[in-house]
Design a protein around this nucleic acid. Structure first.
Length: 596
RNA sequence: GCCUCGGUAGCUCAGUUGGAUAGAGCAACUGCCUUCUAAGCAGUAGGCCAUGCGUUCGAGUCGCAUCCGGGGUACCA
């Protein structure tokens, strides 16, 4: 048991014994003691003053005395103003350290058959263009969230809903038919998603040109946008698609497959995967059915033009369109269908949507609509809302060509990792294959950490030049420290030193104590990250640990140390730190190289 | 207009359920490669935590108001 809990319970007992009052153990405030003050843990005594009816100092003294007498592991205490600073015995810290080094899954509680089943939806691309930086943030957050939830004892199903139908893919299809000259990924050597994206851009260009021409001919902007030949043709394709025209369906399947093949490559590079993939072309009809059912049941209403609406004013929201006047479905309709299908397919306890914050309103509405339709689980869905990624010169806009393409980004990162490594001579003696593998790990570590260390709900600025920095609070810095620790352990093993501890109390330096405290609290950090759904918490935690570790080892060489007990103790310390880095980075989805 | 999320060092970001004197990295400047690997370490400098009022023993953190910025707001997804 963590000593915090013991202290809490004893404080409650003390309040009862000394002041004849009830105080819940869980409400006792405990925090890490400031670095410049003697002690390890601090109890804030202000909340007890109403019961003790004494000065903060006096109260702290009385509680401190009680704790010192009743808890073996409290070595001493000191009172500063209203703060009771407790010094914990070295024996306790050493015990925690040994424990940490023994557990392969330190800090994690593994899921069993009866554990809650959480489904996470993330990525969710359109099939008309390649993945970009925004998707990268989404994918990394989604995957990382899954790892964190797993570490907190949940079973996790990662899912991806692919928006494979609609006007957008028809635009690409039309452009390919008209100007594609039979080009394929094979004949052009272009990645499939990029090829399809190129035709989407081509369509847009042509479309704009036509609009300009029509407007020069006297039409209004709106009329021109509706009447341009390209858009008319694309709409025609959509109608054909909905009528299941064989030729159109075949082309649709063919071009979507190109895109999927391209996505698979990017997903693999990012290190993300899915347990189950849904396609909107397979779920939107169920959404329609549900809406019609709701209409018949009087939950929704129909306007004169035939469009179907939900009145959410009783829930504090507005009216929401569910089916267009022409009977076609909207985004919301599809999401209703997808949600129902998922809950049919899996015994989901909790549904998490990793989707950008521009859709906050959408998910608020979705939750209420599902509730109205009688799906109680709908009210419990969780929208993991994250902020946008901005560039130094402003927002990303695909039409203006200011998007950062995911594949380009990854390739660029690997390139920088290669150059930097070569300059520093870090990977001498590696085979070409080993070196490339390491460049990739480092490059992706840099990218992933750069994105994940930021609080998900905030908008973030992505500066390509800064993201590839390997110094300071970065992924490679943490990976590098891990590699160094492994090196220490390797060399120690080579010399026949086995890490063991005889359990006797060793003299600990302040830095050692600080490190061990951090290690001890790792499970707490994992749990908090799970509750707050925050990869950033883990990232910052691991960074602080690594920084402390580096400082520590700068001052204390392990192998030069004569005393065997101390040497072994430090090996265990190394092992535990490396374990936490590995687990912590694992939770972020970042791999760490054994050596660099 | 209404709803919602932000505003902390020149820049990018941390800051635990309100706790003690506000924390990193980058950029700038100064030192340190016989120890495990300098992708490192140590140090200097840099702050009206957007602004005002309030809540209380105590506010970067909670409440209200204002200013600035992002997003959303009935037939895009």
């Amino acid at each position: 048991m963590l000593i915090e809990q013991t202290i809490r319970e004893n404080i409650a007992k003390a309040v009862s014994a000394l002041y004849a009052a009830e105080f819940k153990a869980g409400d006792v405030q405990i925090q890490a003691t400031r670095k410049d003050v003697e002690g390890d843990l601090t109890v804030v005594v202000f909340p007890f003053l109403p019961y003790s009816k004494k000065s903060p100092q006096q109260t702290a003294f009385e509680l401190g005395n009680f704790l010192e007498q009743n808890i073996d592991d409290i070595a001493s205490f000191e009172v500063v103003k209203g703060f009771l600073n407790l010094t914990i015995s070295q024996k306790y810290w050493l015990g925690q350290l040994t424990e940490a080094s023994r557990q392969e899954q330190y800090g994690c509680s593994l899921a069993g058959d009866g554990s809650p089943l959480v489904m996470i939806e993330y990525s969710s691309p359109n099939t008309n263009k390649p993945l970009h930086l925004g998707h990268v943030r989404n994918n990394l957050l989604g995957f990382s969230l899954g790892e964190i939830l797993k570490a907190n004892g949940n079973r996790v199903v990662k899912t991806n809903i692919v928006n494979d139908r609609g006007i957008h893919i028809c635009k690409s299809m039309y452009a390919w038919q008209k100007w594609g000259e039979g080009k394929t990924p094979e004949t052009t050597g272009t990645k499939g998603d990029h090829l399809v994206g190129d035709f989407y851009v081509l369509f847009d260009k042509q479309y704009k040109k036509e609009i300009a021409e029509l407007m020069a001919g006297g039409l209004t902007a709106e009329e021109a946008a509706q009447q341009a030949p390209s858009i008319v043709a694309a709409r025609g394709l959509l109608l054909k698609w909905e009528a299941r025209d064989p030729e159109t369906i075949a082309l649709w399947k063919r071009m979507n497959q190109w895109v999927y093949d391209g996505f698979d490559v990017t997903y693999k590079e990012l290190g993300v995967d899915f347990d189950k993939i849904y396609y909107e072309s397979e779920t939107y009809l169920m959404g329609k059915e549900e809406v019609m059912r709701g209409l018949e049941a009087g939950i929704f209403y129909q306007k004169e033009d035939g469009s179907v609406w939900a009145d959410l004013s009783d829930e504090g929201l507005d009216h929401k369109l569910l089916l267009r006047s022409d009977g076609t479905s909207v985004y919301m309709t599809q999401d209703i269908g997808t949600a129902k299908l998922r809950f049919n397919d899996f015994a989901i306890d909790k549904m998490v949507y990793v989707v950008g914050n521009e859709q906050n309103y959408h998910f608020q509405v979705l939750s209420k609509l599902l509730g109205k339709l009688g799906f109680e689980w709908g009210r419990g869905l969780h929208h993991f809302s994250y902020g946008m990624v901005e560039l130094p010169n402003g927002k990303m806009k695909s039409r203006e060509g200011t998007v950062v393409d995911a594949d380009d980004l990854i390739a660029g990162m690997v390139d920088v990792a290669r150059k930097t490594s070569e300059e520093l001579g870090k990977l001498e003696g590696y085979t070409e294959g080993e070196a490339l593998e390491t460049y990739k790990i480092i490059a992706m570590g840099a990218l992933k950490y750069f994105i994940l260390k930021v609080d998900p709900k905030k908008n973030m600025l992505f500066n390509p030049e800064e993201s590839i920095d390997f110094n300071g609070n970065t992924g490679p810095f943490i990976q590098y420290t891990y590699a160094r620790i492994r090196s220490v352990l390797r060399k120690a093993t080579d010399r026949g030193i086995t890490a063991s501890m005889n359990g006797e109390t060793l003299p600990l330096t302040e830095k050692e104590l600080g490190l061990i405290k951090t290690i001890t609290l790792f499970p707490v950090a994992v749990k908090e990250a799970g509750e707050a759904y925050s990869p950033a918490l883990i990232a910052n935690y691991v960074y602080n640990l690594v920084k402390e570790y580096n400082q520590f080892y700068h001052d204390h060489s392990i192998l030069a140390e004569e005393n065997e007990n101390i040497r072994n103790f430090r090996l265990i310390l190394s092992e535990s730190v490396s374990l936490i880095i590995k687990r912590g980075m694992g939770l972020l989805g970042i791999r760490v190289p054994e050596r660099m």
